[in-house]
């Protein structure tokens, strides 16, 4: 009896959040595929938000993850151990936007001209279009945001791959759904 009770208590605490996540994301392919890999988060997330693979097409990730590209990663040195570099590149390529069934990934990929290989997510046409209303006062001059590259400062459910506008809370301004 005691064991059953203990088990129930443990399940209640740890299970609740898990179950909620599970059901709210069941068959949900609206955003981009979440990325939970520890190697990826440790290697890339130390400096910037660990952008999901579904935010750029395969060709972009292949180019970005070349060894000499990483040595000049937008002006920063982002060298990785060779085995980690290969592992991360494969991970990114596997879930890239052009093979994804997630809606935002498909929209991003469809917006990029075939002959273009963008390295900056913020320069893909879909992302640009969706952030038209994000004027300098919300981003550039907002000391807590500074740049669109800091996705996670406003997109509060980004870890789940959700980018819906009712999950946007702009620091110093408030919920986007209330500002709009």
């Amino acid at each position: 009896m005691k064991k059953v009770l203990l088990f129930a208590v443990v399940m209640m605490f740890s299970g609740q959040a898990l179950a909620e996540d599970f059901f709210s994301n069941l068959f949900r392919f609206k955003g981009v595929k979440p990325m939970t890999d520890k190697l990826y988060k440790d290697s890339c997330g130390e400096c910037h938000f660990a952008y999901q693979a579904g935010l750029l097409p395969k060709r972009s990730w292949e180019k970005m993850m070349l060894a000499d590209q990483l040595s000049d990663h937008f002006g920063e040195v982002a060298d990785l151990e060779e085995e980690d570099r290969i592992a991360i590149r494969d991970m990114l390529v596997a879930d890239a936007a052009d093979t994804s069934i997630y809606k935002r990934s498909m929209k991003i990929d469809r917006s990029i001209p075939e002959n273009a290989t963008p390295l900056r997510i913020t320069e893909t046409p879909y992302i640009k279009k969706k952030h038209k209303e994000m004027t300098d006062k919300y981003v550039k001059f907002n000391p807590k945001v500074k740049s669109l590259i800091n996705c996670n400062t406003c997109h509060r459910e980004i870890e789940k791959g959700i980018f819906d506008d009712d999950t946007v809370l702009i620091p110093n301004f408030g919920y986007w759904s209330e500002i709009e």
């Binding site: 040595s71 040195v77 060298d79 990785l80 151990e81």
Partner: peptide, 8 residues
């Protein structure tokens, strides 16, 4: 990793 990146 960080010695390598930051020295470079």
């Amino acid at each position: 990793k960080w010695f390598k990146r930051n020295c470079k």
